[in-house]
Write a protein that binds this DNA or RNA. Structure first.
Lengths: 210, 210
DNA sequence: GCAGATATTGATCATTTGGTCAATAGAATC
DNA sequence: GATTCTATTGACCAAATGATCAATATCTGC
């Protein structure tokens, strides 16, 4: 039973098929994690023979690395777009922290955590992980630097603060991923932590309408 | 070449052999990560036939979960011993943060990160991960609560602050694990963050002799 | 020494993984 | 309608994984 009897896939141009496979891998990663992005699983998801996936990708290590980059870079772009609409660094930083910690991106968090672990045995992925971390850090650092220039934040090393904040946020998200079921608000306390790092008065980063 | 030609293992009592296998798994986890704790790898490390490992352990999932618990609970015990020698909550909290972030436990951090990922597909491990997180949070919460009682810290929810601090520290360690090669001091900034969370003046958590 | 108890092993199995390659089928072109 | 090009596939392979079990070797008690 349950031999899905896949029929022959409709012929596509190489570009279309490559995209279809990349999308299948992406959806799989978001739903079941990077570890589920396997040759056969991707093929099944794309409605295609396993050999075709192998044909379109140099190796699974590379496909996994690309899939990770696809998922994460989309997240970065999304956040950057949100930041653009805000008036100043203070609002941007507050929104940044709240949005990243709002729990609506647990699927992406899972991809991050698995990438950290898998990167140990997949050098292509490891390189991509570092690149995406740099991208994230850059976004945060830009906000902080702008705040310092505007005289709103106080720190001698915006880059270090950005790394620190990124690490804190990643850890809190990873924690929430494992402790599913607890309803603790992740965002309320960290604002005070960031205020401490940047010499701000208590409550300076609270949401405007709160 | 390189056929190790293992000779028959010297006979041990079940208790001794079980310990030997557990130690082999532990060493393997610390050196190469939880993902390297495989039936054959543990057997080779213990100088024993793979079947013997299977004989002494209900399943590899369980062995991995136990190995994780062994590694992490030792770390918790170590930190608790360190805390005992300090006079007050303020010194304890400062030391806690500095010690956890001093970079000397990257092997344990790797075990943590892999446990988060593997826990998705190993329920026994997932249960153990939550238990060990609870233990860690308990240690931190005790310090914070003592500080609040002593009038040194200011927070309405020591439990939440403890979770928050644990998440932050885990994230920073995980980040350092991936970005090996950077020499950024991980501990300097977080003190200010914690000060922000606990209503402390800047520098209150700095090392005494600094 | 001998015999029994049992710790240990080799052989083997089923699964899952990534990967290769000749063969096939279907669309496009003539 | 026949032919060519190539996207797609089935049939493999090697490696690694967890696991089982009858057979074997070795220690212990007599």
């Amino acid at each position: 039973m349950s031999t899905p009897t896949r029929q022959r896939a409709t012929r596509m141009s190489p570009a279309e098929r490559a995209l279809s496979i990349a999308n299948a891998a992406r959806a799989l990663a978001l739903e079941e994690g990077l570890a589920a992005v396997t040759l056969r699983a991707v093929a099944a998801r794309a409605g295609v023979a396993p050999a075709l996936v192998a044909h379109y990708v140099p190796s699974m290590d590379v496909l996994i690395a690309r899939t990770f980059a696809s998922v994460v870079s989309a997240e970065v772009a999304e956040i950057e777009a949100l930041l653009d609409g805000l008036p100043g660094p203070r609002e941007q930083l507050g929104m940044l922290v709240r949005t990243i910690l709002d729990g609506s991106r647990d699927d992406v968090t899972l991809v991050w955590v698995e990438a950290w672990a898998l990167g140990r045995r997949n050098e292509t992925l490891a390189v991509e992980v570092r690149a995406q971390m740099d991208a994230w850090q850059g976004v945060i650092q830009d906000v902080i630097s702008a705040g310092v220039d505007a005289g709103e934040f106080e720190t001698e090393d915006p880059a270090a603060v950005a790394w620190q904040l990124l690490g804190m946020v990643d850890g809190l998200n990873a924690q929430a991923l494992v402790r599913w079921g607890d309803t603790t608000d992740r965002g309320s306390l960290i604002s005070h932590a960031v205020e401490g790092m940047l010499g701000l008065p208590r409550g300076a980063l609270d949401a405007p309408g709160a």
